[in-house]
Design a protein around this nucleic acid. Structure first.
Lengths: 193, 193
DNA sequence: CGTCTATTTGAATGTACTCAAAAGCGGTGG
DNA sequence: CCACCGCTTTTGAGTACATTCAAATAGACG
């Protein structure tokens, strides 16, 4: 039942035979999240890593005083979780909310661990995913310390055109680490229509 | 000849037999970098990943107008490189300089690739390294968008006491994304001795 | 000892935030 | 289908955070 997306994603990096494929997908569990609902809530144990089948999600941190910082957005064909808490079996520091009705495949820690021993090639697959994620985050950190808010905004729009189109300015601001008011003010300045 | 450090690092995560160990270390090449010299220079092809035997290094980006942003610091027992350019065989965007006389083991892309096929367990090892690096960078990005410069500074000192002790304020500032003048000004404010 | 770079200090400026209020927009119920 | 409600976005004034530039001081190194 439509495991195409995740299997194609995997096969960009490694080759699985039919048995491995069917075993891999047998370990996935479907979950639907409707708009504005949380897939993971800050404080709860983060048991799963999620592959997004459809929809879009936002991973964010909420500080004690209520300020939200968006760590990442996820769309179809992306893996998403609170990685630190997932791999260390800690209560989540991050929440994951659906920006629209979404559907994911989830894989819990034990199953993933078992998969690594049963299909060692998956180590390579996830090694490459982690490697890409690392590079992405390092570039983001570099952007954060190098550019002004305005520059960061235009770089974000360029890099993630699909995502930046569908999210609200409030969420964009919380990803850039600025207030929605300030984002609004420099968008106006640049669109003097 | 003192491969202890790197072999111990590996054995925190996977088990290699003696043959694998000796093969692995046979692929490493030693390189010495004296203080202020560059191990990698922005623009040059980034062929290697480096394991730091001794000393300390700084990975940084220099923009056209000469402003430097420090991406990371590395001390003994850490792996370091311009990961994005290493895995994509691109000219380096980052430079790596020695903060003091240092010594590294280097491993080039081809050798690492060969090692992955010959000792598949290494996929797990690097998967874990990449996973940790990803988590670290994600937390850093979160810090950058959530906290003020002053808060980021004290969090940095707490998280990396060894590193923060040995580096200059100029380098600290370039890691935090602020000017040395501003770092100096709030350090004074908090130490009214 | 002298040179070079890092650090400090201060004034002026620019970037980004806070708070408050108004306007816009989407969803929901009557 | 329209009216209302809640949330997002806009706008502006005042403030705080952080930079720039310049000059003085302190430290490191040959």
């Amino acid at each position: 039942m439509s495991f195409e997306l995740v299997l194609n994603n995997i096969q960009k990096h490694i080759l699985l035979d039919d048995l491995e494929k069917s075993y891999f997908v047998s370990q996935l569990q479907e979950e639907a999240v409707s708009k504005k609902r949380l897939l993971l809530e800050q404080g709860n144990l983060c048991r799963n890593i999620y592959f997004i089948r459809s929809g879009s999600l936002r991973v964010f941190y909420r500080s004690k005083d209520g300020k939200e910082s968006t760590v990442m957005f996820g769309i179809a064909d992306w893996w998403i979780t609170d990685m630190y808490c997932f791999v260390n079996k800690r209560p989540a520091m991050l929440s994951i909310e659906a920006l629209e009705d979404s559907s994911v495949w989830k894989l819990d820690y034990c199953r993933l661990k078992k998969l690594y021993t049963e299909i060692p090639k998956l180590e390579k697959y996830f090694r490459i995913l982690m490697q890409n994620a690392y590079c992405r985050e390092q570039l983001r950190a570099l952007d954060n310390i190098t550019f002004t808010a305005e520059e960061r905004y235009s770089r974000f729009v360029e890099k993630y055109p699909l995502i930046s189109q569908k999210i609200t300015q409030k969420d964009t601001a919380s990803y850039l680490g600025i207030t929605p008011e300030f984002l609004s003010s420099f968008k106006r300045k640049n669109q003097p229509s």
